[in-house]
Amino acid sequence: MKKATNKTLTRHASLLTAALVATLLAACSTPGTRVVLLPQADGTASAVVVRSKDGEELLSKPYQRATAAVGASGAPVVDQADAAKVQAENKALFDMRPPPPQRYTVYFELGGTTLTAASQQIMSEAMAAALARSGSDIVVTGHTDTKGNGEQNDVLSRRRAQEVAQLFIERQFPAKRIEAVGRGERELAVPTADEVDEPRNRRVTIEVR
């Protein structure tokens, strides 16, 4: 019997959620493999492929279940598990799940790395959350509006992300637990034409997880 393997999991899926799926492999009342796909904490889609020697099935909905008994022929049998029962039977594992990520967005003045006045308060809230969350890590993603060319905006978005990351480091948050990346103008919060000054696109998103 081949074990289940992930087909698609979003980057926000926690390691513990994956561990819960793996642990449920042993939940069969008869020898074999059983997989129950758990929902992601942030509601994003995920899926897992369950394979046996004679076929495979894709689980793509929360609490879908695939069962492949030892010696049985054909692909795994898929049905819908009862969410409350799964949670009750695996309470200790569910209790171990980390809290969902906390997300913040800060905005910048045109053309630079200066935070707007309102974003100063948001930064304080994000810092407090990161410092209070034991073992947390942070993903900081910089963005720009469409003013300027793409190469310049890539550089600017990275600078913005690095500036925000540095603010966390100055508050004694471990630098090795911060990832800072820039997306330039490729992921606009508000779609616009080229060369448009849109304050809502000049931003950094902060995910504390």
Rank of each mutant, 00 (worst) to 15 (best):
A88T: 15
G135M: 04
G112P: 05
A175P: 00
Q121V: 13
F108L: 03
Q120V: 14
P99S: 09
N149H: 02
G148N: 09
T141R: 10
A161S: 13
I138Y: 04
D154K: 09
T116F: 01
T192N: 07
V77R: 05
N153F: 06
P98K: 03
R203L: 12
G184Y: 02
R183D: 11
V196S: 04
P98D: 10
I169A: 07
L167K: 05
A132R: 02
F173E: 08
D145E: 04
A161P: 04
V78T: 04
T144Q: 03
Q80N: 15
Q166G: 05
T192K: 04
Q162L: 14
R97T: 08
V208H: 02
L93V: 14
P76S: 12
A189W: 02
G148W: 09
V190K: 07
R133G: 07
R177G: 08
P101A: 03
G111N: 09
A117H: 14
P191G: 05
Q162E: 14
R202H: 11
T205H: 02
R183V: 04
T113M: 07
Q172W: 03
Q120E: 15
P101V: 11
Q162H: 06
K176N: 14
I138K: 03
A165H: 01
T205M: 08
S136N: 10
Y107G: 02
K85D: 14
V139C: 06
D95G: 01
S119V: 05
A193V: 11
F168T: 01
Q162M: 13
S136P: 04
E207Q: 13
N149P: 06
G182N: 12
T146W: 10
S119K: 09
S157T: 01
G111Q: 14
A129E: 12
I138E: 05
D145Q: 01
L188K: 03
T114L: 13
H143D: 04
L115Q: 07
V208W: 03
G142V: 00
F168A: 00
A129Y: 02
S119C: 10
